[in-house]
Amino acid sequence: MMRYFKLVNFELGRFFKLYGVIIGITILSQLVGLWVVSNSYMERANYAMFEENLSPAQFVSDNGEMSLLVLTRTLWFLGPIALGAIALLFNIFFVWYRDWFGKNTFIYRLLMLPTARINVYLAKATSILLMVLGLVAIQIVLLPVESVLLKWLVTRDFRLDLAPAEVVSGFRELMIILPAGIIDFILAYGAGIMVIFILFTAILFERSYRIKGIVFGAIYVALATGIFLSPIILEGIIGTNYLYPMELLVLEIILGLIVSAASIWVANYLLTKRITV
């Protein structure tokens, strides 16, 4: 168990510099973005008031208030989130292949550690999950900071102050990373973990059987997806919704757990019996 935690910490360390850069870009881009967006709003407001003699209330009624939601709809805000998502998605593959390729052959070391090899697999998955959650956390912490900054940049008359949760629910796309309720959060990220397990196992198929392994990996992904979605596919074929939505959800949770467990089991077999350096 301790070796698993050590491995998680180690895997985090290997991506940490790049991770730090992504966090830095996120913070910088959002704060600079807020400054730019707020200033351009205030410029327009001032112009309207002094040149067109509009009252603040009239301007707000025509243009809407300035709030963090205005920022969320800009590339300043969305760009870094997309960057983080792409980097971590890419990392699902990178986290394995960098150990095989390049000058070093670190995979020898990992596979020769006096610990169950599945720990390496679980540690790599955990590190990705933690980095995703870390980015989400940074975003949550950033929102109130931006709220304070907004108070400095925009005067009371033009401002709509929103709590972090309100910013998220006011902007649907943000709800992808922060679903509405804690149960939704667990479901969404649980599904995400399942996807990581499926992809990891597919990668190990490729690493075990090489060219043939690509085919096996693809078949595995199709099979896992098929099993997970089987109730929905089946109902689609039959054309009736035999299960009530809640029942379907419970069934999907069970299938998700089965598919995840199967992925770990298959990966364990591949790592101990079939893997090749």
Partner: peptide, 18 residues
């Protein structure tokens, strides 16, 4: 896995992160 405390392998390339 316990064997790896009893046997080790030194490949022809370094097995550490450069």
């Amino acid at each position: 896995k316990q064997s790896f405390e009893k046997i080790t392998f030194i490949p022809d390339a370094i097995t550490m992160i450069p």
